[in-house]
C-alpha cells in the first residue's frame, strides 16, 4: 500500500540544519491500522505531511498503491489528495469561511457529488463523531474538540483509501475520543481503509495493528502494540 524509502526532510535555518526526518524506510500494507509515536519533535507530523503530499521531501521516495506520488505534477497530487487521501491535521485546519457542515461537504462537492448528496454524507459522518448539532456554525464559534471532530468527518467524507491522522484525539475527552477511534476502527474493518495515525495515548494502542516509533527523525522500532 505505502512504501517509504529512505525518506528525508531537512530544514535549513541559516547555518543550522534540522533533520526532521533522517532516512525513514517503512512499508504499510493495505488495510493496516498503524500508530506512529515518538517524543515531541521526533518527526511524526513531518512524516505524515510528506506521505500526505503536502510538502516535498528532501530525499527518498514514496509510493502509494503503486504510484510514485513524488513524480506526479502539482495538479495530479491535488487530485490524488482529493480522491485517495483523508488528512486530519494536528491543528484541525478547517476553512474559516465555511460552516462545520460546509467544511465536510466541500471535498465531496469537489469530487463531483451534488450538494444534497454531499450534505447527507456529511451529516451521517458528523453524527457518527457525536456532532449532529451546531453544524451550521463557523469553526471560530466551536470548541477545539468540536473542530477536531469536524476535521475527522471532513477527512472521511470522500471515503479515502488512506487516512492520515495527526493526533486526531488530542483535544477530545475520553468518550469523544473513543467515538472517533471506534469510527476509525470500523471504517478500517468495513472498508479496508489504511490508517496511519499519530498518537501518544496508551488507550489507543489496542486499536493499532502495529506501532512505529520515531526518534530524531528515524524509526526507532517497529512492533506489535502489545510490546512496550
Amino acid at each position: 500500500m505505502i512504501r517509504v524509502e529512505g525518506l528525508r526532510k531537512i530544514y535549513r535555518m541559516g547555518a543550522v540544519e534540522v533533520r526532521a526526518l533522517d532516512g525513514v524506510t517503512l512499508g504499510i500494507r493495505q488495510g493496516e491500522f498503524v500508530g506512529v509515536t515518538g517524543p515531541s519533535g521526533s518527526g511524526k507530523s513531518t512524516l505524515l505531511h510528506l506521505v500526505g503530499l503536502l510538502d516535498p521531501p528532501s530525499g527518498g521516495g514514496i509510493s502509494i498503491q503503486g504510484t510514485d506520488v513524488l513524480a506526479l505534477s502539482d495538479d495530479e497530487q491535488t487530485q490524488f489528495r482529493l480522491t485517495r487521501i483523508g488528512y486530519i491535521f494536528q491543528d484541525y485546519a478547517l476553512v474559516p469561511d465555511l460552516t462545520a457542515l460546509e467544511n465536510v461537504v466541500l471535498p465531496a462537492l469537489a469530487l463531483g457529488l451534488g450538494e444534497r448528496e454531499g450534505a447527507e454524507r456529511a451529516n451521517t459522518l458528523l453524527s457518527r463523531v457525536g456532532l449532529a448539532e451546531r453544524t451550521d456554525h463557523l469553526p471560530a464559534e466551536l470548541s477545539g474538540g468540536e473542530q477536531q471532530r469536524i476535521a475527522v468527518a471532513r477527512a472521511l467524507v470522500n471515503e479515502p483509501v488512506l487516512l492520515l491522522a495527526d493526533e486526531p484525539c488530542a483535544n477530545l475527552d475520553t468518550s469523544a475520543s473513543a467515538m472517533v477511534m471506534d469510527l476509525f476502527a470500523s471504517i478500517n474493518r468495513e472498508l479496508g481503509q489504511t490508517v496511519l495515525m499519530v498518537s501518544h495515548e496508551d488507550e489507543h494502542r489496542r486499536y493499532f495493528d502495529r506501532i512505529v516509533r520515531l526518534r530524531d527523525g528515524r524509526v526507532e522500532e517497529e512492533g506489535e502494540p502489545g510490546q512496550p
Binding site: 500526505g52 503536502l54 495538479d75 491535488t78 487530485q79 490524488f80 489528495r81 482529493l82 480522491t83 487521501i85 488528512y87 491535521f89 485546519a93 478547517l94 476553512v95 466541500l106 471535498p107 469537489a110 471532513r154 470522500n158
Partner: peptide, 8 residues
C-alpha cells in the same frame, strides 16, 4: 487548507 484537502 483548500489545496491540502484536494481543491485545485
Amino acid at each position: 487548507i483548500l489545496k491540502a484537502i484536494g481543491i485545485h
